[in-house]
Amino acid sequence: MSLPAILLFLLFNYLPMGGIILAFKDFRYDLGILASDWVGWSNFEFFFTSQDAWLILRNTIGLNLIFLAVGLTLSVFVALLLNELRGNRLVKTYQTIMFFPYFLSWVVVSYAFYAFLSTRSGILNQLFHVLGLESVSWYTEAHYWPFILTFAAVWKGLGYWTVIFYAALIAIDQDYYEAAAIDGAGKLRVVLSVTLPMLLPIILVMALLQVGRILNADFGLFWFLPMQVGMLYETTQVIDTYVYRALSVTGDVGIGAATSLFQSTVGLLLIWGANLLVRRVHRESALF
């Protein structure tokens, strides 16, 4: 039954993986991938010898963890609320509207945010002005950006994640609720003892899969939203944007391949470890 998927994965994912050797090569167009010279680990040096390597790693991992924690909590919470309102006509409207941000590409989101945050003509500063507050120069002050980025990431994905958890909630057998109701359990108890445990597998799987991508930043978010203002790099530079910027100067395919191999390997180790852990706690939810 899985054959079509396996074939597609082989063609579009596994076959190109041969190109991972580029990470160890000095790629020349005229020689091609196979005939280019081997250069050992030197392509990996680029990232690790950079002065900002630690800062960039901190931003990537830290922000990804925050996004994951806030995003998961909020979307599970909203799904639970919507579940309470089940049958209400407004649920559909809420869901639809929550999905709006997901339709916008990051470029467009960056424009929308700019309309609010622009120092001169932004809506927020206009509002501050009316309220008699000092206007804020959002695009020069790095310390606001962890919040702005978290807001944007959670805001854009909220509808998407909520739908997943909501769909999982619908699938819970009514019998469980009825049994709980007969036991005379209060609303909160039902949520804690019936709903959440039923949601646990899907939460775990989502979290597991995200942990594997802890070093991979959402490129569009970090590239477009801060408008590439250098003064914000302290909190907005992540591995993907750093390497992308380097590639546009050096045009070096090897550096890109090396960095992504590093990201993937760390991801694999993390997923593997997390999976072991999950297998202890909740056997069925383990990925493999």
Binding site: L209, R213, G256, S264, I271
Partner: peptide
């Protein structure tokens, strides 16, 4: 085995040029 086979494609990719070549 199948789960690992599927999961692996989420983490590793061949990069732009090899994918383009294929």
């Amino acid at each position: 085995k199948l789960a690992f086979f599927v999961m692996f494609t989420m983490l590793f990719n061949g990069g732009l040029i090899p994918t383009y070549l294929v």
